[in-house]
Nucleic acid binder design. Structure first.
Lengths: 232, 232
DNA sequence: ACCTGAACACCGTTCAAGT
DNA sequence: ACCTGAACACCGTTCAAGT
């Protein structure tokens, strides 16, 4: 309870990283400042620079940390039992990565911002490649596959366009929809039909999961069809 | 030539946005600060706040500007001549959007950071939906399709993992590869084989274009197969 | 109506100095 | 070896004041 015991534990690169992850998890990425992080560690901001070259290094480090967490979990996925089993194995790996990233919501943003690749990230992709090779992909097709998956290989997609759920019971948003209908007939058509069929379907994480899996399976099935084909 | 004529042109929201786009194009997103932008307009930073509520509004504005540019170009794509023609039309639209975004490299990053959807973005997606509907998609499948495409619908994917091209003639990187081979056998295998088959294949925009189109076609073909199917 | 100077609260970071 | 105080160069932004 005393601040002394806490601040007694000597600072270390390790402790900086794990505390940074905790801070970002709890308070969001914008709260991860050098001063905040130092305060969390019971130390002054400038002390961090003794253990870490700069903030970029911290961001590199926390990406490596979560990728390490993913790699730990992903080794528990049973490897492909046969070449035809590659799809199941990769699917499970990717959905496992997604689970970890859902506990670190800042993950995608920071991962995308990195310019240096982390060792744990390389390890993850090496594992992806291993599964593809086991499934009969030559390196060329495997290369294409990794690009086709993009960030989906890591379990996330950046949603660009997440319009509000049109709560059909709210008269104000209905009025809004009517106004928009003139300019965006298809968008309004889709939103109202989907809201009608399954109210609340565009809400929250549950639905995103469905969409993620839909897109993932579409790509995996597409790739499956290309194995052994000479045409790319 | 005199600064007077330049600074004579009265400031306006419009002029702020177009200058912001120019500045970001020329000097990168990190150069787009209120002070820099004001200087570019021959004015003090605080003057901007008279025409624009804050920096977020500027970012919203420049996204709207490039999306407007995309919409302008995309209307020139010939609409689907028949339902079966949907794929060609959508493909052309998306590749057109990509061309515009390649002239505004900051586009993807800023687009992804937006929380308010812009009108021009809605217009773009309305156009995408129009093509899908013309191709026989019901709204439910069209909705899935948009999620499956994700940022690809706008012509970009964020590359997470762009290892350096292993210049096979550089002995230093070859040594590095040998060291990595123990930990990442598949990654190194792929990199060396692809470098061998087609040296420089992972370099530059040309290759990214190939990969983008590969992934796009994979998804479009996958979707094509689902039209009219009751199973999602 | 339109623009500005001075000031504020925040950043990341350097450097000489403390123990 | 490890940590810190003071300071610097930058942010975005507010507000009262100028024309």
């Amino acid at each position: 309870m005393t601040t002394r015991t806490t601040s007694r534990t000597p600072l270390s690169r390790e402790r900086v990283m794990t505390t940074a992850v905790e801070l970002a998890d709890r308070a969001g990425l914008e709260a991860l400042t050098m001063r905040n992080l130092a305060h969390e560690l019971g130390v002054e901001a400038m002390s961090l620079y003794y253990h870490v070259t700069n903030k970029e290094a911290i961001l590199d480090g926390i990406v490596d940390t979560v990728m390490g967490e993913i790699n730990e979990r992903v080794t528990m996925v049973t490897p492909p039992a046969s070449p035809a089993d590659w799809k199941r194995a990769l699917r499970e790996r990717i959905l496992t990565a997604r689970e970890v990233l859902l506990r670190h919501r800042w993950g995608p943003e920071v991962i995308e911002s990195r310019t240096n690749v982390s060792l744990e990230t390389m390890k993850y992709f090496d594992g992806v490649l291993a599964v593809l090779r086991a499934g009969g992909f030559d390196y060329d097709l495997a290369h294409h596959a990794m690009h086709a998956l993009g960030s989906r290989a890591l379990g996330f997609t950046q949603e660009l366009f997440e319009p509000e759920d049109p709560g059909t019971d709210d008269p104000e948003t209905m009025e809004m929809l009517a106004l928009m209908a003139a300019d965006f007939p298809y968008l309004v058509g889709m939103m109202s039909e989907i809201a009608h069929d399954d109210p609340g379907s565009t809400l929250g994480w549950c639905d995103d999961q469905t969409e993620f899996v839909f897109g993932l399976d579409l790509i995996l099935d597409g790739l499956d069809r290309l194995i052994g084909t000479s045409g790319k």
